[in-house]
């Protein structure tokens, strides 16, 4: 394999990861890390470092389209980002002290449980939501134009405190494992907080860039971000996420959800395997 071929294969893997990632609100790290380590023989630390940079790229490239289309709830995203950024710092600091194997296994189970819930849930999650006085006061309720429904879709934000707690945990996982954490935030925003899946995906994606930059800075300063791994990964992921962002606006909700459940299943098997056998 020549260096050019190697780089092109890494870029192709990254295009696929970016495409899937932007469709479901994850950064693509779930695809990139195993592909780089298992298929391309990259050191896991360098794979995670390239992955977290790619997460920044995915989020920024896709969010520039979402934000223009006003799908993401910036006020809610900024508020929850306090918890996520704090979590990412704690996670990055804790990474030196905690045995990650237990976390891999625990989160594999959590992802599996979330995937099952997601697959069972109805499309409209906005019934039986308790009113949230804090969300009222902070004017977090919003709306977005849904292309597949052909109309403006309004929604109310509920269970803000739960969302804040989950965001903190998602940030911590991001700091520890080098993933975006959208895989944890999107189901909770959708099912518990009453935010439509597309708006939840866009808002999560919007937040992930900031969270991932926090982790990426640590890896970058340490010198774990290898330029000839990170370059094809970042470029490929940006290209893939551009395609994904274009598709998301017009895609039927069902397919986004199926794709998301599929990613959850793959991620859970990967994490449980790592926790138990490696």
């Amino acid at each position: 394999m020549t260096p050019l071929e190697w780089t092109l294969i890494v870029a192709l893997i990254s295009v696929s990861a970016g495409l899937v990632g932007s469709l479901v609100g994850v950064g693509g790290g779930i695809v990139i890390v195993p592909a780089l380590t298992l298929l391309m023989g990259v050191d896991i630390r360098h794979a995670i470092a390239a992955s977290i940079v790619a997460v920044v790229a995915t989020s920024s490239a896709a969010a520039s389209t979402y934000v223009r289309e006003r799908m993401s709830n910036i006020r809610l995203g900024m508020l929850l980002e306090i918890a996520t950024a704090a979590g990412a710092i704690c996670g990055a600091l804790l990474a030196n002290f905690i045995q990650p194997r237990a976390l891999y296994a625990l989160f594999g189970i959590l992802l599996l449980w979330t995937g099952l819930n997601m697959a069972r849930s109805r499309q409209d999650a906005s019934h039986n939501l308790p009113p949230d006085a804090l969300a009222d006061r902070l004017k977090l309720h919003s709306s977005y134009y849904d292309r597949s429904l052909g109309r403006e879709l309004g929604y109310r934000v509920s269970r803000l405190r739960l969302g804040f707690g989950v965001s903190y945990i998602a940030g911590m996982v991001s700091g520890l494992l080098g993933v975006g954490g959208g895989i944890m935030k999107v189901p909770v925003m959708n099912l518990a907080m009453g935010i439509p899946l597309k708006a939840a995906t866009a808002t999560s994606n919007f937040m992930i860039g900031i969270t991932a930059a926090t982790g990426a800075a640590v890896y970058f300063m340490r010198g774990d971000v290898k330029p000839f791994i990170a370059a094809p990964v970042a470029v490929g992921v940006i290209a893939g996420s551009k395609i994904g962002a274009r598709l998301l606006g017009g895609m039927k909700l069902r397919y986004v959800k199926y794709a998301f459940v599929g990613v959850l299943a793959v991620a859970s098997v990967q994490m449980i395997y790592r926790g138990l056998f490696q």
């Binding site: 920024s60 900024m78 900031i210 991932a212 930059a213 970058f220 000839f228």
Partner: peptide, 24 residues
């Protein structure tokens, strides 16, 4: 040096979300 130009691009990429927060 190719590596230096790549590193500059990666550094800018990582700081883009920081500029986003600053703009907010």
């Amino acid at each position: 040096k190719g590596a230096a130009w790549i590193v500059a691009g990666l550094a800018l990429l990582i700081s883009t979300p920081v500029m986003r927060v600053t703009a907010s």
